[in-house]
Design a protein around this nucleic acid. Structure first.
Length: 605
RNA sequence: GCCCCGGUAGCUCAGCUGGAUAGAGCAACUGCCUUCUAAGCAGUAGGUCAUGGGUUCGAAUCCCGUCCGGGGUACCA
């Protein structure tokens, strides 16, 4: 049977897979499944494109690995016209695929504007991605950066996989933490505002949070010297009493308190907006905890009435999760106030009322794995059928060489500081290398920023999200090697080649001829052909790292070959044409990939 | 105590639905700017894949034990 009809639009793996399946029935009367037929890309040091592992078939062929591979190879060569030749090494059958096939891939990648990307339609699933989720009492730090970059990137990857995506942020705008900042500002603020001090709002509020902690600690020490226990001191210090008083007033909707709360949160939001903009992240819908926590409380009370939860003598409300192999979980304190879990129940309910969500994704650190395990069970118990399907995208912590980041000990890396530092390093390095001298000041500044953010984003996203990662602020981030700027740089060089081709009026829209493609060029083509599969894999596994590492491999392969080849001075017109198209396709693919990571690609650098 | 996650080159990380000789980058050392951008390219050196056992034709990858590190564990969020 001819497989020519698949030639244009079918994945080569699928063609070979089907052919092998047929072959196994013919040769050994074996109905093989996906587990038995193992296809893999042929390793660099062997000849061929696709490798079949024949060990699983030996039981049926009743022959040696070599003989089985030989027999299968012969069969495939005869029946599948894209198979050009084959060779056998031990139990491995290596197939070489016709150059025409790879050229078709290139033609497709080149002519299709969004190669490898699937767009959403009316019927597409809707995924809501929650990320960022800051508290309003302090500025964003390095940990938030990982969260924001992951959340944004995953959203883009899901979009590229044909999903409709709503990016959402739940702002933790109420509670004792913001009251601490409010108390400190009232007490020691002297009317300081972002306007009269020139400070960024979130940093200003964060300072008062630190100020609070300083006084609070001093008061505790003082009280302990007077003979109080640690516990008593912590609960009787004037500062904490003041902050709690503010929380009570806020919950009672005291006008002056609510006003101050609004004002100070407003400062923080202005500050956050600036940071978000720098990071290049955004949201379609923002929820505020002050608007959702009461909904959660109502749900818990409903659950209590329906006998899903139970109440203790002290009036606290609990869920019994022993059947699920977990513990008892508190849902309302004895004074009736809500806890974290209560709020998340409320937020979830509101979201599913607001949107027809098919998949809810929470981008939240792995220290909350237990929380989300419990949340899924509780939502399920409350009768929300989507509860158990929620997906906690759990990521590891960012560690510093000195250990954990701790706000109180001053070992945090502030997000704004880090970004500016990166930009400054990128600027200095560019100037030192004498780059971008032809650009205007404004254009150059924009490019420095792209490079700086490219370095930061790539550095964070290339690491497997679920693992903890180490960040060394002193060494900062490299601009060489497996980095964002390395990929941006190659992209910029390709743009330069394409610009010059255009200036020289080279017409690159010619038909591709299959002659004289080097093995190395074929490797690049093979890599390009993998892109749609990579996008899908990244979508299935929620993994920006898959995209990042793919881009790097492709760029490295391209660089290694084309560094020493002058494309434009190539006299063979067909060859030059091919190389230009290959270059253009490489740059399109890496741009698509890098954009999924939220990384912009500069035309010059 | 119990539960979850991790341990791969000096450092930071890939590879983990079992397949061929475990890969990159950084750092070190050696070459290459008269060639579309040297933020680059070519090369040298660097490994008991924490450890002991098991399953298998085949284990960094799967299972069990041990050690080390991180996180969680009923009124923080």
């Amino acid at each position: 049977m001819s497989l020519l009809k698949y030639f244009q639009n079918m994945n080569i793996d699928k063609i070979i897979f089907d052919a092998i399946k047929e072959a196994l029935v013919d040769l050994y009367n074996l109905e093989a499944d996906e587990k038995q037929i193992q296809l893999q890309n042929t390793r660099k040091d062997f000849e061929g494109d696709i490798t079949i592992v024949v060990f699983p078939f030996l039981r049926f062929s009743k022959k040696s690995p070599e003989a089985t591979a030989e027999e299968l190879g012969k069969y495939l060569l005869e029946t599948v016209n894209v198979v050009e030749s084959y060779n056998v090494i031990k139990g491995f059958l290596n197939l070489a695929i016709d150059k025409k096939y790879w050229l078709d891939v290139l033609q497709e990648a080149y002519s299709e504007k969004n190669y490898g990307i699937e767009f959403s339609t009316e019927k597409s699933e809707l995924a809501m991605v929650e990320y960022s989720s800051p508290n309003t009492n302090k500025p964003l730090h390095l940990g938030h950066i990982r969260n924001n970059l992951l959340g944004y990137s995953i959203s883009e990857i899901l979009k590229a996989n044909g999903k409709k995506v709503v990016k959402t942020n739940i702002v933790n705008d109420r509670g004792i933490h913001i009251c601490k900042s409010m108390y400190a500002w009232q007490k020691w603020g002297n009317g300081k505002t972002p306007e009269n001090s020139g400070e960024k709002g979130d940093h200003l509020v964060g300072e008062f949070y630190v100020e609070f902690d300083k006084h609070y600690k001093a008061e505790i020490t003082e009280l302990k010297e007077k003979g109080l226990s640690q516990d008593e001191a912590e609960n009787q210090a004037p500062s904490i009493l003041g902050a709690r008083e503010l929380l009570r007033k806020w919950e009672a909707k005291d006008e002056k308190t609510v006003e101050l709360w609004k004002t100070m949160n407003g400062w923080v939001y202005e500050g956050f907006d600036v940071t978000y903009k720098k990071l290049g992240v955004d949201f379609d819908k923002i929820y505020y905890e002050s608007e959702t926590y009461l909904v959660g409380k109502d749900e818990v009370l409903r659950g209590l009435q329906e006998g899903i939860f139970y109440q203790k003598d002290d009036n606290s409300v609990w869920a019994d999760l022993s059947k699920e192999g977990l513990d008892q979980k508190l849902l309302l304190r004895r004074d009736g106030t809500s806890v974290y879990m209560t709020q998340d129940i409320g937020t979830a309910k509101m979201r599913f009322t607001d949107y027809p969500i098919d998949k809810m994704v929470y981008v939240v650190g792995n220290e909350q794995n237990y929380h989300f395990q419990v949340l899924a069970i509780l939502l399920d118990k409350l009768g929300f059928e989507w509860g158990k399907d929620l997906f906690h995208f759990s990521y590891g912590m960012v560690e510093l060489p000195s250990g954990k980041m701790k706000s109180r000990e001053g070992t945090v890396v502030d997000a704004d500081d880090l970004v500016e530092e990166m930009v400054s390093v990128a600027r200095d390095m560019s100037k030192e290398l004498g780059k971008l001298e032809t650009l205007t000041e404004e254009e150059a500044e924009k490019t420095y920023r792209m490079i700086a953010m490219g370095a930061l984003k790539y550095f964070i996203l290339k690491v497997d999200p679920k693992k903890n990662m180490l960040f060394n602020p002193e060494e900062s981030i490299d601009f060489n090697g497996n980095t964002g700027p390395f990929i941006q740089y190659t992209f910029a060089r390709i743009q330069s080649v394409l610009r010059k081709a255009k200036e020289n009026k080279v017409d690159i829209d010619k038909e591709l001829k299959p002659d004289s493609i080097s093995a190395k060029e074929k490797d690049i083509l093979k890599r390009i052909s993998l892109f749609p599969g990579i996008v899908k894999e990244a979508g299935d596994n929620f993994s920006p790292a898959v995209i990042a590492n793919y881009c790097y491999e492709l760029v490295k392969e391209y660089n290694q070959f084309y560094h020493d080849h002058s494309i434009l001075s190539e006299t063979d017109e067909e060859k030059r044409n091919f190389r230009l198209i290959l270059s253009a396709s490489v740059s399109d693919v890496i741009k698509s990939g890098m954009n999924m990571l939220g990384i912009e690609m500069p035309d010059r650098m």
